[in-house]
């Protein structure tokens, strides 16, 4: 199983709970806002600690309450593409891309800077500052930065939501290629049915 997740967490008044295990490809997570889709991704990444349950990715246990396993985010090898790209504003594009790459051990890296740059078509952006990038450009760089950190899987949190329709189509094509050509399992949060329809290998719906 690519993602084997069974977690629950109480955040204030709401109880977030999800249990599913899915195979490779892109798994679309849909559901009403407030269902905890983003919180679920944060739990998979290790940025939020579940109250109970387990998180396994590609057979590796990242979190298991019963067994007392809780890997810190930096040891989970999960690439996270945020809704707002979240590039480091004080580093140029090249330094953003290489941030995680330099931290990964050589055997964990499975793609290099040149391959990522040509794959994403971001060669002209390398010396730019993040604040000068358009939304679509920033999202490409964010995907590249995640891939270069040598992840076993990717989490994407509504990566298209801040883009205009032409940009959306471009990035969707790109995500399909990450899914098919690079064969990285992806957990993908969206509230857009058409987007899920087009990209998803399988769909999971979170309820409140």
């Amino acid at each position: 199983m690519s993602f084997d997740i069974d977690v629950a967490k109480r955040l204030g008044d709401i109880e977030i709970a999800a249990a599913f295990s899915v195979g490779p490809g892109l798994t679309a997570l849909t559901g009403p806002s407030g269902a905890g889709k983003t919180s679920l991704l944060a739990m998979v990444a290790g940025l939020l600690k579940p109250d109970r349950g387990h998180v396994r990715v590609d057979g590796v246990t990242l979190f298991d309450k019963a067994e007392g396993i809780d890997l810190p985010p930096n040891r989970r090898r999960i690439g996270y593409v945020f809704q707002d790209a979240r590039l480091f504003p004080h580093r140029r594009v090249r330094a953003n891309l290489l941030y995680g790459h330099r931290l990964a051990t050589p055997e964990d890296r499975w793609i290099g800077l040149e391959d990522v740059v040509s794959f994403l078509g971001i060669a002209p952006l390398l010396d730019r500052w993040p604040r000068s990038l358009s939304g679509g450009e920033a999202q490409r760089v964010a995907i590249g930065r995640a891939l270069l950190s040598g992840p076993r899987s990717l989490l994407m949190d509504e990566p298209l939501s801040s883009l205009d329709p032409p940009r959306r189509a471009e990035i969707m094509t790109l995500i399909e290629r990450v899914r098919d050509e690079l064969a990285v399992p992806i957990l993908y949060v969206t509230h857009d049915g058409a987007e899920a329809e087009r990209l998803a290998t399988q769909r999971i719906t979170l309820g409140i």
Partner: peptide, 8 residues
């Protein structure tokens, strides 16, 4: 948080 997911 982003830095942490990148291995920091």
């Amino acid at each position: 948080g982003a830095a942490r997911t990148l291995g920091a």
